[in-house]
């Protein structure tokens, strides 16, 4: 039940990002929308890994070695999301760098000014 709510939140975030990417004309806003889609995807991946009544897969006093397989959440989606967050940051950095160069070439950030690569 709880993971359904989290899953729905992540998917709504993806929808908001998609809507923002398609409606806004400013490159910075498009980059923000792209990051929203990325964040939504991370939430969806984490939600898929949830197990009912699960807790973080860290063995300590609260979660002993014996009960870990029954009470821990799936660790693989969490590990994937850690890597995905870093790659998302890297992609955002490259997009922002291109945005700076595009601004220098046309002195505007509106994508309506960049018609050369439009088919």
């Amino acid at each position: 039940m709880m993971s359904n709510v989290v899953l729905a939140t992540g998917l709504v975030l993806i929808l908001i990002g998609l809507w923002g990417m398609l409606t806004h004309r400013n490159i910075l806003r498009i980059i923000i929308a792209f990051s929203l889609i990325g964040t939504g995807t991370h939430i969806v991946i984490v939600a898929i890994g949830y197990v009912t009544n699960g807790t973080a897969p860290i063995i300590d006093r609260a979660l002993t070695l014996l009960e870990a397989p029954a009470r821990a959440v799936d660790p693989i989606p969490s590990a994937l999301v850690v890597t995905a967050i870093v790659i998302g940051l890297a992609v955002t950095a490259v997009m922002l760098a291109y945005a700076i160069r595009l601004y220098e070439s046309k002195k505007t950030l509106s994508i309506d000014a960049f018609t050369e690569s439009k088919w």
Partner: peptide, 16 residues
Amino acid sequence: HNERHSLRPLAESYVK
């Protein structure tokens, strides 16, 4: 979406 009640076999072996 159906919430899982137990770990997948791969995840279970990782946790163990």
